[in-house]
Amino acid sequence: MPSSVSLITGVAGFIGSHLAAALLRRGERVVGVDNFDPFYPRDLKERRLREIARDGFHFVEADIRDRDAMFHLMATHRPRRLYHLAALAGVRPSIEQPHRYADVNVNGLVSVLDAARTAGCGAIVFASSSSVYGNNPKTPFAEDDPVDHPISPYAATKKAGELLMHTYAHLFNLRAACLRFFTVYGPGQRPDLAIATFMRRMRKGQPITLFGDGSTSRDYTFIDDIIEGVLRAADRIEQPDCGNYRIWNLGGSAPITLAHLVAAIERVSGLRAVIERKPPQPGDVERTFADLSRSRSELGFEPRTPLAEGLVRQWAWLLDSE
């Protein structure tokens, strides 16, 4: 029988480390796996692990594509719940390395799913992405909107992941929740993402690059709100009346343009941004905007952190980490 352990892949990442800390605060035992992919510096990931290290947490360094390692991991710990957050992230790098993104995000997922089902894992939460909506002409984006037109390899791998989750739920009676995250930010945000990049460069007096005319918009979602949604989804997917496969949006549902984001960071930091403009980048969507009707109704999910407050907390984290 599965144990009371929760297993997190990608535990040294931004969302994974926050999720591990939240589960540990709830008194759960957590096993985390990560391979320290060099997409960004290992020392940042190791720092996250040091911050969450305590009784009840066990870390394993392994690659999700290593089937032997995944089967051994699952057989040893027999998790009740699996939170699959490990993936290669980033739209633009996926255009340069589509083969690698497919290998990690699709083959890696299959490896994890096979190991989890063999070990009797009851519920699996999969980190999908708002990128699956592509340039959806309808706003806000709802879970039952067509998602057959991704515009980056990264988005395509996330759509493939959702399909695999559905297939395994159907074939093997797994409880499968797919969560479409909308641009997550907050303390410890991935260093390649816009808010982290802008804050870091503005702090150093360096110019920031804006692709396009600043009119593209994103539905920024604070990390604490995302973690609350993840926990609610994991609880809900185990309920008998939920069915064994469900997709939920987790977003702030309050999109803001890139130009307005820069202005907001200027207000928080008290600094003036020096802007370098470049043409729009291939693979970047024009907008994201989460319809939360299903998440509110079925999960009781409600984002509670306004952008201004979230930016203040991320800016303070940056200053403290220097």
Rank of each mutant, 00 (worst) to 15 (best):
L7H: 08
I8M: 01
T9I: 06
G13F: 08
G16I: 04
S17M: 02
L19W: 08
L23V: 02
G27C: 09
E28F: 07
F36C: 00
F39V: 00
D43K: 12
L44E: 03
R47G: 01
R48M: 00
E51F: 00
I52L: 12
I52S: 11
I52M: 12
A53M: 08
R54C: 04
V60I: 14
V60W: 08
I64S: 07
D68R: 15
A69V: 13
F71V: 13
M74R: 09
A75Q: 11
T76G: 04
A86P: 00
A87L: 01
A89N: 05
G90W: 10
P93T: 04
E96L: 12
E96N: 09
E96C: 09
Q97K: 15
P98R: 10
V106H: 13
G108A: 11
R117H: 09
C121A: 11
G122I: 00
A123N: 07
A123V: 00
A123P: 05
I124L: 12
F126G: 06
N135K: 08
P137Q: 06
P137S: 04
K138E: 05
P140W: 08
F141V: 00
A142F: 10
A142D: 07
V147Q: 14
D148R: 12
D148P: 03
H149R: 14
P150E: 06
T157R: 08
K158Y: 03
K159M: 07
E162D: 11
T167A: 14
F172M: 10
R175K: 15
A176D: 02
L179N: 11
F181P: 01
F181M: 12
F182M: 03
F182Y: 15
F182R: 08
V184K: 12
P187A: 10
Q189T: 10
R190D: 05
D192R: 13
D192Y: 11
L193A: 10
A194N: 03
A196I: 06
M199W: 00
R203Y: 10
K204F: 04
G205K: 10
Q206R: 15
P207A: 03
P207R: 14
I208C: 11
T209L: 08
T209V: 15
F211R: 14
S217M: 11
Y220M: 02
Y220C: 03
I223P: 06
L231D: 03
R236D: 02
I237Q: 11
I237K: 14
P240C: 01
P240D: 15
R246G: 07
W248H: 11
N249E: 02
N249M: 08
G252Y: 09
S253V: 01
S253L: 04
S253N: 15
S253D: 08
A254Y: 01
T257I: 06
L258S: 09
E266C: 07
R267M: 04
G270D: 05
G270Q: 05
G270N: 03
R272V: 10
I275N: 13
E276N: 15
K278A: 13
R287M: 05
L292N: 01
L292F: 04
S295N: 04
S297E: 07
S297K: 11
G300N: 02
P303Q: 00
R304Y: 01
L307N: 03
L307P: 04
A308Q: 03
G310E: 05
V312K: 15
A316M: 09
W317N: 08
